[in-house]
Simulated assay, not measured.
Amino acid sequence: MSEKIILLVEDNQDDEELAVLAFERSRIANRMVVVRDGQEALDYFFGTAANGGRDAGVPPQLVLLDLKLPKVSGLEVLRRLRADPRTRRLPVVVLTSSKEEQDLLESYDCGANSYVRKPVEFARFAEAIQQLQMYWLVLNEQPSAGK
């Protein structure tokens, strides 16, 4: 079995650090890759030059996607992922601080697998991350890449 990569798409450095720390505390060994804006996320997925030759044929096991991103919004990233046969089945969890009902609805309309509001308190945030990781990386079964 290949390494399970988690792609965190997050522009807020504090939230990034909290997520990384929460994953480390959960003690499930996965490599986390962080991209900081929507364009960088698209470059990562589709193997464009900005990713230095990353094999786009090896997708992340889980995508944690913020909505409010510079350059390209999280919703637009999600739309493009779902429109491409190479990425349409990737599990994408919207992980956001947005409390807007419209963001929730649009996320699901665009194909999000889950929508999680970032808890403000670190202990609750760490618990949420641990539960996401357990479900999406351990319990959930996904089709093989390219199927």
Rank of each mutant, 00 (worst) to 15 (best):
S98L: 03
L69E: 12
D43Q: 11
R80H: 06
N12A: 13
L42S: 06
Y44E: 04
Y135W: 08
L18K: 07
Q130T: 11
L78R: 13
R88S: 14
L69D: 14
A49G: 07
Y108N: 07
D109I: 05
S144L: 14
V20I: 08
L104A: 07
S98D: 12
R117H: 06
E3M: 10
T87C: 08
P59Q: 11
E100S: 13
E40C: 04
K99A: 13
E3K: 06
I28R: 11
R89P: 02
S107P: 04
F122L: 04
L42Y: 04
A145L: 00
P59E: 00
A128G: 05
R27H: 08
D66C: 00
E101N: 08
N30Q: 08
S97M: 04
T96G: 03
A126M: 06
P85E: 15
V58E: 01
L104W: 05
V35G: 11
D103T: 08
Q133R: 09
R25E: 09
S97L: 14
E10F: 02
S98Q: 02
A145Y: 02
V138I: 02
V94S: 09
L95D: 02
V77I: 12
I28F: 12
A29S: 08
E141Q: 07
P70H: 12
L18P: 01
Y135E: 07
A126W: 06
Q133V: 01
L104R: 06
F46I: 00
P70Q: 13
A22V: 07
C110N: 10
N30R: 06
D37V: 05
Q13A: 04
F125W: 13
V72K: 15
I129Y: 04
A49N: 07
A112Y: 08
K71N: 11
L65W: 02
K99H: 11
R124H: 14
E106T: 04
L90Y: 02
Q131D: 15
R82I: 13
S98R: 05
D15C: 03
V120R: 10
L69F: 15
P119D: 15
A128W: 10
A19E: 06
Q13F: 00
R27Q: 05
I5R: 08
L81K: 12
S97V: 09
N30Y: 07
E10W: 02
C110R: 12
V35S: 11
L78E: 14
V34W: 00
